[in-house]
Amino acid sequence: MSVHIDITGLRQERITFAPSPLGELCMALHAMSEPGHHPGLQGWVTGVTARLDPHLADRMCEADFLWRSTFSDLFVPYAGIPGRSTLPGDTLAEELDLLDKLTDEQFVDAAMEFTTCATSYSTGGPGPLTDAGIRQRALEQAAARGPRQLAFTERLLADPPRTRAWLRQFLEDCDEAFFAETWSRMHHQLATDARHKTDLLHRKGLAEALTSISSAVTLDESATRITVDKLGTGRTATQDGGLLLVPTTLGWPHLTVLYRYGWQPVVHYPVHNTPKIAAPTSLEQLNLRMTALSHPVRMRLCRSLARSAFTTSELTQVHGMTAPEISRHLGVLKKAGLITTRRRGRYVLHQLDVTMVARLGSDFLEGILR
């Protein structure tokens, strides 16, 4: 499972690294709604939440499904502008102006991304403003999700301009309440990262630039397709437009890809505020490790190998199994990267890599939230 971006024919000058204040505000709202996703931001979230005006906090809950469980494409409006080459604005006001340039159909479809009955995301088609059947299913699904979702959906479908005005005012109020100060501190780091990645792109090429984003983002040998390793499936193409790569300091561990039909592809990638401790584990490797640990015999072997190094012969005696059986299970654990081996004379000692096993919890969380 992964998201693919076809970049056939894409010229290097159409690849842009640029920060987005509106995208970062989306990440801020998400972190405040789901602080558990961002343990490193809990102090910041607590401080901001404590200072929030109660009325603004209530309004924040009114449409938090736009950023709590999925990042609505309303927060990357530049991607939906005709021509598929518009860049993020330098200021939040500029990006809100771009949001105003989306058609009512684009706005409603992106705002209803939290439902499963909206327009097919990657193939296009009619939306709830023009298709009565889709409209009715949208209302039914919103009702199933809760009264706030239903009230928002009813208002959105009845009067898109009014809802657009409400959202813009809400985002401007968030900017005044807390985001302007946050952005003033983060903008320099994001701009610096974008310049560094751009320089890397020009000096060493796209493959190196993508690797510097995350090991989860790769370029194929023909340099015509970007693959983002995610627990999801999607595909898009730059066609005659460009490719945008947007850094975020608040977004880790989320690595998001916009692949909406007709919109410019956008990769929103996290910039670590602290030195990276290790490259992200691929989902294939994560699955391999969890599968390896799911077998009861290998679990018992891990118990022994966590305490000391053992030879295959010693493990056969401890666990009452034949040498070929032990070797087979050790092979699975070694392939998954969970044990280390070292030679001592004519003996080969096996031991559990406790650090790697300890990482599984955080790797699993990073993988499913990526």
Rank of each mutant, 00 (worst) to 15 (best):
H37Q: 14
V357E: 00
T123L: 14
L98H: 10
A165K: 11
H350R: 07
T233S: 14
D109G: 05
S85I: 13
R155W: 00
L74C: 08
M1T: 10
A279S: 13
Y78G: 04
D175A: 13
A177S: 15
P21G: 05
Y261D: 13
V332T: 13
L66P: 07
N287F: 09
G89L: 02
D64A: 09
P324C: 04
T16G: 02
R303L: 14
D97P: 01
D353N: 15
W183I: 06
K101W: 01
S85V: 10
T236D: 04
L206H: 03
S313W: 07
E140I: 13
L219Q: 05
L87M: 13
L87D: 00
D131P: 07
G205I: 05
A132E: 15
G205N: 06
A142V: 03
H196W: 09
Y269T: 08
R84I: 01
A28Q: 03
G23K: 01
F107G: 07
M27F: 11
L369R: 13
H30E: 06
T49H: 12
F71P: 01
L157N: 09
S308V: 02
F179Y: 13
T281A: 12
K197Y: 06
T224Q: 11
T238D: 08
D159L: 04
V45N: 08
T248P: 03
A50M: 11
L156S: 04
R370Y: 09
M32F: 04
S304V: 04
L150Q: 08
T355M: 11
L139K: 10
L10M: 03
E105F: 00
T355Q: 15
V357T: 13
Q264T: 13
A323N: 10
T182F: 06
S304Y: 15
F75H: 06
A57G: 08
A158R: 13
L52M: 15
L231Q: 12
T248W: 07
D100M: 10
Y347E: 15
D240K: 13
S215Y: 10
T115P: 07
Q141M: 11
H268P: 00
S327H: 08
Q285W: 05
V271P: 02
R235V: 06
A132F: 09
E94T: 10
S72H: 02
K197V: 07
T227D: 04
T115G: 05
Q285A: 14
E94I: 01
D6H: 06
Y259N: 12
V297H: 07
H188N: 11
V45P: 06
G43Q: 15
A158L: 08
L200W: 02
A110V: 03
W183G: 09
L52R: 06
L156D: 05
D131G: 12
W252S: 12
T103P: 00
S72V: 04
W183N: 06
S212W: 05
D97I: 10
L206R: 07
A191N: 10
P19N: 00
Q285C: 07
R370V: 05
L293N: 04
C174L: 08
L92F: 08
R84A: 12
L301E: 06
R168A: 12
M60A: 14
T70P: 00
L74G: 03
Q42P: 00
Q189C: 09
R328S: 11
L231S: 12
D109Y: 00
T233P: 00
A165M: 10
H38T: 03
H202R: 15
T70S: 14
A144D: 15
L360I: 12
L201M: 08
L206M: 04
A223L: 03
T274R: 14
L92E: 02
A143D: 14
